[in-house]
């Protein structure tokens, strides 16, 4: 019985596995350029890191209530979650281009759900470079900061990484859904995809009210890294965003995915119904 179920499950994932495996093979085929790309994504991560280091070093002790090492904990959590999401979901953000080139129509001719096909149509292994850098920063920050290690801290850390990843993935899907409407203005979605990434690395205490609303709740970026990190560090959090809200990261992730799936469904309907 269990065998039959496993067999059915393996048959179910076979299409996705076949496509992804081919993407992995293709990317590893060009070793020299793959290594250059790995290095390149790490450099991008490094410049993002430089911003945090420069700003918090220029500060007079603390900035927005955090010192440099505390800020690096927020950065490491956010950066790792984002980079992993970018690796698996980043190409969903180029949907407008894929609509223009007609590759989306090809997906309609295959017997799997569209979004599942699109997500598994590619993987950017080169982003491992950026993830690796994020892991280093995160480990250093966890060691240097005063974290009260125990089951609670481990659970917080795991929850933060999983929910942060889910929220960033949801943002990519929301962007994809909206790009069905924004074929010539798809940069609009950069505002919350990349703006959201940027926001997630900041202490929420420095946000102006409009940003608190947008990136605290509409796109719940504060739940990716800042709030869980404040719980880990025993810091109070920000006005409107107290640290204890960090425990609600799974709810924030569920909310982000609700928005994402609604945007996706609206986009697909628009494409089938109104687009041309």
């Amino acid at each position: 019985m269990g065998d039959g179920l496993a067999g059915r499950a393996s048959e179910l994932v076979r299409p996705y596995r076949a496509v992804l495996a081919s993407r992995v093979r293709a990317q590893r085929a060009y070793r020299a350029s793959f290594r250059a790309d790995l290095f390149g994504t790490a450099v991008v991560g490094l410049t993002e890191l430089a911003e945090v280091v420069v700003l918090f070093s220029a500060a007079n002790g603390t900035l927005g209530g955090l010192d440099l090492m505390q800020a690096l904990l927020v950065f490491g959590l956010a950066e790792l979650a984002f980079s992993n999401a970018d690796m698996l979901f980043g190409h969903v953000d180029s949907l407008a281009r894929q609509v223009r080139s007609g590759t989306v129509d090809i997906l309609y001719l295959r017997p799997q759900p569209l979004l599942a096909q699109l997500v598994t149509s590619d993987i950017s292994l080169r982003r491992v470079g950026r993830s690796a850098l994020a892991v280093v920063v995160l480990v250093v920050a966890l060691v240097v900061n005063d974290v009260d290690w125990g089951p609670r801290a481990v659970a917080l850390l795991a929850m933060s990484l999983v929910c942060g990843f889910a929220i960033f993935c949801a943002n990519f899907v929301t962007a994809g859904g909206l790009q069905f409407f924004l074929l010539n203005a798809q940069e609009v979605t950069n505002a919350f995809v990349y703006g959201g990434r940027h926001a997630s690395t900041q202490p929420a205490t420095v946000w102006v009210r409009s940003i608190t609303v947008i990136f605290g709740f509409v796109f719940p970026m504060a739940f990716c890294a800042y709030l869980p990190a404040m719980l880990l560090l025993g810091e109070p959090g920000a006005e409107w965003l107290p640290a204890w809200l960090g425990w609600y990261a799974p709810a924030a992730a569920a909310w982000a995915w609700t928005v994402a799936l609604l945007a996706w469904r609206a986009g697909v309907r628009h494409y089938q119904g109104g687009g041309g």
Partner: peptide, 15 residues
């Protein structure tokens, strides 16, 4: 997108 980044940057730089 620029305006969003502008708001994010001015928040932290003005602080």
């Amino acid at each position: 997108a620029n305006a969003t980044f502008g708001l994010l940057k001015s928040g932290i730089l003005l602080t």
